[in-house]
C-alpha cells in the first residue's frame, strides 16, 4: 500500500523551509498547520504518531532545534529555518542507537505506538544527563503515556542504555 496521500488542491500557502533529520525540506502549508500533520502528510514521515492531539500523550514528540516538543501543538510557521529531528533519523546517532537497541532488548516496546515519542523523550535525557537515576528517568518520561508496559521495561531500557553510554564514555569509545 502506498504512503501517498492525494491532497485536495489547496490554496497557495507560503513556503516554509526547515531541516528534517539533516536534510532540507520545504512545504507549502497553512501557517497554522500542525507540525505533526506536515511531517506525516506532506513529508510522509509516519513514525511520528498522534495519540491525543492536545499535547498530553507525547506520541508526537520531536525535536525542534534540540528542544523536545509535542508536534501536535506546534504550528508549522514556528519551525521556519529550524532543525527538526524525528524517529526516522534517530538510528543515525550512535548514542541514540544504543537507546533504541536497549528498548528492543529490554522489552520497552510492546504495541509500539508510543515508542517513537517515548524514545524522543528518553533521547532528550540521554543527551543531557547520563548519570540520571531512576526517579529522574521517570520524571523525564512522565510526559509520554504508554498503556502497554507499565513503564517498567521502558525505564529499564533507559537505565541500561545510560550505563552503556557511561561505560563507553569512560572507555573513550563513541
Amino acid at each position: 500500500m502506498a504512503h501517498a496521500e492525494s491532497v485536495a488542491p489547496a490554496p497557495a500557502h507560503p513556503e516554509v523551509a526547515f531541516v528534517v533529520n539533516g536534510a532540507p525540506a520545504a512545504v507549502h502549508a497553512h501557517p497554522m498547520s500542525r507540525l505533526l500533520d506536515v511531517l506525516r502528510e506532506d513529508l510522509h514521515l509516519f513514525g511520528t504518531k498522534e495519540g491525543c492531539g492536545e499535547g498530553e500523550c507525547g506520541a508526537c514528540s520531536v525535536f525542534v532545534d534540540g528542544v523536545l516538543v509535542n508536534s501536535c501543538l506546534v504550528p508549522v510557521c514556528q519551525v521556519a529555518g529550524a532543525r527538526i529531528e524525528t524517529i526516522e533519523g534517530m538510528s543515525a546517532h550512535p548514542r541514540l542507537r544504543v537507546l533504541q537497541e536497549a528498548f528492543v532488548r529490554d522489552g520497552g516496546a510492546q504495541c509500539g505506538i508510543c515508542t517513537p515519542g517515548m524514545l524522543m523523550a528518553a533521547a532528550a535525557l540521554v543527551q543531557v544527563d547520563t548519570d540520571a537515576d531512576e526517579a529522574t528517568i521517570r520524571t523525564a518520561l512522565a510526559g509520554n503515556l504508554c498503556r502497554c508496559t507499565g513503564y517498567v521495561r521502558i525505564v529499564d531500557a533507559v537505565v541500561h542504555a545510560l550505563a552503556e553510554l557511561r561505560a563507553a564514555d569512560a572507555g573513550g569509545t563513541p
Binding site: 501517498a4 492525494s6 509516519f46 534517530m90 533504541q100 537497541e101 528498548f103 528492543v104 516496546a109
Partner: peptide, 27 residues
Amino acid sequence: RSVQRREGSDKVNGKLAYIDDLSLPGM
C-alpha cells in the same frame, strides 16, 4: 527464552504502518 520481539527493531525506528499511516489513491 526471552527472545527479542520480532518487530522490535521496526517499532523503535518508527517503520511500521499503523492504519492512520496508510492511504489509498482517491481515498
